[in-house]
Amino acid sequence: MAADLAEKTNRYHDLLAEALGEAEIAPPDGTAMSEAAAECLEMAESYLDDGRHFRDDGDRVNALAAFSYGHAWLDAGARIGLFDVPTEGHLFTV
């Protein structure tokens, strides 16, 4: 079971890191929507950093949760139009 948790944690880390690299803010600069998108990106990046900290400390459960929450911020933002993202593939559910 520990091996499964380690694999899943690493997989979700990679998913979030890759999704962060693909998400681009869609609304025009200076709008409330672009500010909301920037805040979502900041949250996702923070959860990635937190997850890495937890993982480095051996706390895989909280690392997995952090990576999952981070990806949820991006995926939700993509669904409501805050981000331009790939529509094909495994990164987003749009």
Rank of each mutant, 00 (worst) to 15 (best):
M1Y: 08
M1A: 12
A2S: 01
A6M: 15
E7Q: 10
K8P: 08
K8S: 01
T9M: 01
T9I: 07
T9D: 05
T9N: 07
R11C: 07
Y12C: 00
D14W: 09
L15G: 05
L16Q: 08
E18V: 00
E18M: 03
E18I: 01
G21H: 00
E22Q: 02
E22Y: 04
I25R: 02
I25F: 11
P27H: 07
P28S: 11
P28T: 04
D29I: 09
A32L: 11
A32D: 03
M33C: 06
A36V: 01
A36W: 03
C40Q: 14
M43D: 14
M43L: 15
M43S: 15
A44W: 01
A44D: 06
A44N: 03
Y47F: 13
Y47D: 10
L48C: 06
G51H: 02
G51A: 08
R55K: 15
D56S: 01
D57K: 06
D57W: 12
G58R: 12
L64K: 04
A66I: 06
A66Y: 07
F67D: 00
Y69K: 14
G70W: 02
G70D: 00
H71S: 06
H71P: 12
A72K: 10
A78G: 03
I80R: 15
L82I: 08
L82G: 06
L82T: 12
V85N: 04
P86E: 14
P86A: 06
T87R: 15
T87H: 12
G89R: 15
H90A: 13
L91E: 05
L91C: 10
V94A: 08
